[in-house]
Design a protein around this nucleic acid. Sequence first.
RNA 1: GUGGGUGUAGCUCAGUUUGGUAGAGCGCCUGGUUGUGGCCCAGGUGGUCGCGGGUUCAAGUCCCGUCACUCACCCCA
Length: 424
Amino acid sequence: MKYKRIKGTRDILPEESWKWQYLEQFITKILEQNNYNLVRTPVFEMTDLFTRSIGEETDVVSKEMYSFTDKSGKNLTLRPELTAPVIRMYIQNNLNQISPVIKLFYIDSLFRQERPQKGRYRQFHQFGFEIIGTPHPESDAEVIQTMVAIYTKLGIRDLKVKLNSIGSRDSRNKYLETLQSALEQHKTKFCSTCQDRMEKNILRLFDCKSQSCQDLLDEFAPPIIDSLSVEDREHFTQVQNFLKISGVDFEVDKKLVRGLDYYTRTTFEITSSLLGAQDAICGGGRYDHLVEDLGGQPTPAVGVACGMERLMLILDQIDTIPARKNKLVYFAVLGENAREKAFEILCKIRNRGVTAEMDFMRRSLKSQMRNAGKKEAHLVAIIGDNEIEENRIILKNMKLGKQQEVTVENIINEILKQLNEVEV
RNA sequence: GUGGGUGUAGCUCAGUUUGGUAGAGCGCCUGGUUGUGGCCCAGGUGGUCGCGGGUUCAAGUCCCGUCACUCACCCCA
């Protein structure tokens, strides 16, 4: 085989594509009810946008981006995440002038060059939403509550919301110094990647999977919560308060830090035990400095992103996506004159909003009926030259196994009538 | 970048230990009296056994290499 899919990409086949459409429409509907507005941004941006926002030392930027130089010499990158492009759009189009607080959402493809595995691809999809313009804790709570509501309405029960606060930028910088000095003397006891991270991004030590490193952290690392300012703590308390009011169950995870540098104060993650190794289905948090870091006015914001492939893995397991419901009318045709008449009726009936199809293989009636059965047609119109001469068409109801003769003039109305009849 | 697993028909997989003409189920196509689906029955279509080399009279099977896919680590959604 000469041409094959690029590693880490996927073909969505007919048997699966309708599920994606269903899911996207479902998500869109709920987010619109919450008054979020859909936006789309280009698939590529200046590389700089991502290195500045996500952070140069993060894995995403340092080793996972699809970057290239275009013919004019610009450094471009296929977006590895969507918050930075959305914020760039917000700044460039002066969306702050529309209203002080703006709520946006997106459903789009992202690209990261990682080793693919279950629930993780190189081209993958996220939907996410952002509330830009307010620092207040009810917006943090709304983001989390909205995401939980989407999952719940999709029938997902097995969720865990993990919540933490890593403080404002000032208190976090102080904490990083505290952490640094507390761990300095024990540095050699940590694993090599942790030692490396102590230099570059010490907060990420909390991500380490090694039990011995975690034990060391439990013993020697001061909790981040102790370094939070009074304002930070109040904010965190209020986020929890609003979550309780909204009825969202959560647990505080003191070690939850995130891989992107721009987060401040609230960070959270929702996991599902149905996913296995890659169990985070969405992640997000507050990013109060990103807008100004990218050149806009100082503007607080909070947002979340959900991995759609992982979401689909869960939905496949709990099997909640309803089957497609379009009723098919199949035209079984015998003979030249009949074929022309059938094609004419076929076009007319489609204009009336009916899903209809006719045989294109010129096969025997038996084969056509088999085909109609296989495609789960509700009605089959049998049109032969005999019928055309006598101005009649046989209309068979496949569920009931009954058929009747209808005149050519009445066929469209009769089909519409039978399709609208309530099933028992 | 590191480690494990798997590559045989459109799909799911037997066959590899012990070398001897390429298999099953599902799917697809056709038929089971004149022009009627599902169930059943019969027939048919379909494969450079991932690719390249080696050993041998003979390789899907043994040896070497290589590629691809996949799961896990790292990281992330």
